[in-house]
Design a protein around this nucleic acid. Sequence first.
DNA 1: ACAAAAGTGTTTTCTATACACCCATGG
DNA 2: CCATGGGTGTATAGAAAACACTTTTGT
Lengths: 224, 224
Amino acid sequence: MKNKIKLTVDAVVFGYESGDVSVLLVKRKYEPYKDAWALPGGFVQENENLERAVERELSEETGVKINYLEQLYTFGDLARDPRGRVVTVAYFGLVKPNAFKLTASTDAKETEWFNIKKLPKLAFDHKKILKIAIERLQGKITYEPIGFELLDKKFPFSDLEKLYTSLLDREIDRRNFKKKISSLKILDELEEKVSVGRGRPASLFSFNKSRYFQLKKEGIIFEI
Amino acid sequence: MKNKIKLTVDAVVFGYESGDVSVLLVKRKYEPYKDAWALPGGFVQENENLERAVERELSEETGVKINYLEQLYTFGDLARDPRGRVVTVAYFGLVKPNAFKLTASTDAKETEWFNIKKLPKLAFDHKKILKIAIERLQGKITYEPIGFELLDKKFPFSDLEKLYTSLLDREIDRRNFKKKISSLKILDELEEKVSVGRGRPASLFSFNKSRYFQLKKEGIIFEI
DNA sequence: ACAAAAGTGTTTTCTATACACCCATGG
DNA sequence: CCATGGGTGTATAGAAAACACTTTTGT
């Protein structure tokens, strides 16, 4: 029996800047769904593993430098691709704000960041994939410190707070939030300060990842 | 460019009986890894989605009736299968105790339940898959009520407690555990009692799944 | 001087934990 | 009558939540 199933990877890449969570989309150059927006992705080659395939497609189509990558889910419905039976392994990625720069691409006419609250129509079943990715992101930032992967290396505390507020779509008490994060001892407070326009300048913090892994080994649990 | 990647599914099916968590394995009938124990699974056919493929393989190879099924992870390392490039979508399943009956199979010489603490050598990368599945099971029973899927419809409370004790590998205070579960209001206490040998007879409980979904919608969170 | 954002403590409420004795049955 | 497992309540400690004013800067 001949196996005609084809395998692709797709990437849901999130970025964050000043209160807005965005996702990276590419405009399709070819049929099917020519000129529709889609998640970056493509066929897996025989000599590369899945992560490599995602990284290759992302670099070919968008030039974006990915900072965190994990597998999301595999979608295998019969009719999800009009070209035939195509199963896709979706990944979930995060980039830092300075990776927002976009470069010309080979496989896509255009690449653009879209606010996750203002999405265009999407090709294939990408709307469903994106929905699941957003839910995963929302769930995961509450029990793993992946929010920092969306922020610059040095950030004012209010950036972190705004990220959680906008991602979880609810108000957060600034004092309680600071208390909780501080108690985890995973942030270093730097000497530097930034003043962004008006208002009191803010201290900068950085996420101490190795300290986090150390504490995690000792049984400390990150939870918001 | 020709795509020669093949796609399989594998199932990690857990069962539970009197303190022991077991996993269902089949002895391979053909090369590669002939006569080694492996997770049930096989090639996905072009006209079936992934869940169907898992269910078909399980019924062909083991005859076990699955009670809960969710996707676990997709494994795509280059060298994971000596037959060439084979990517597998692993699933995670739970069966009730009375589904422990095994039937003769077509693809496997033997099918057997193995205590997860006394596993044989496994074919392919199935040891790695099983490890991830066990971690997922341990993690998931603490924030979703999937433990009930491993118990009979009616069960004494101590069964639930023993399940958690053996799965999480730590002592649980009986009174506090009862208090927590009771506060969720997801169990119905039945009139019936069972006495299993010596000791005071135990009331039977049943998991009220629709009430759970109702409460979940209202924001109640299951957590152990 | 005022608008804007940063920074900071205390009290109250709720939840988690620790802990030990009586009950109903079978042998 | 005793061995076995089932069933139950209270007190304490720790964590989460509620809550408002002062500080520093730019304009």
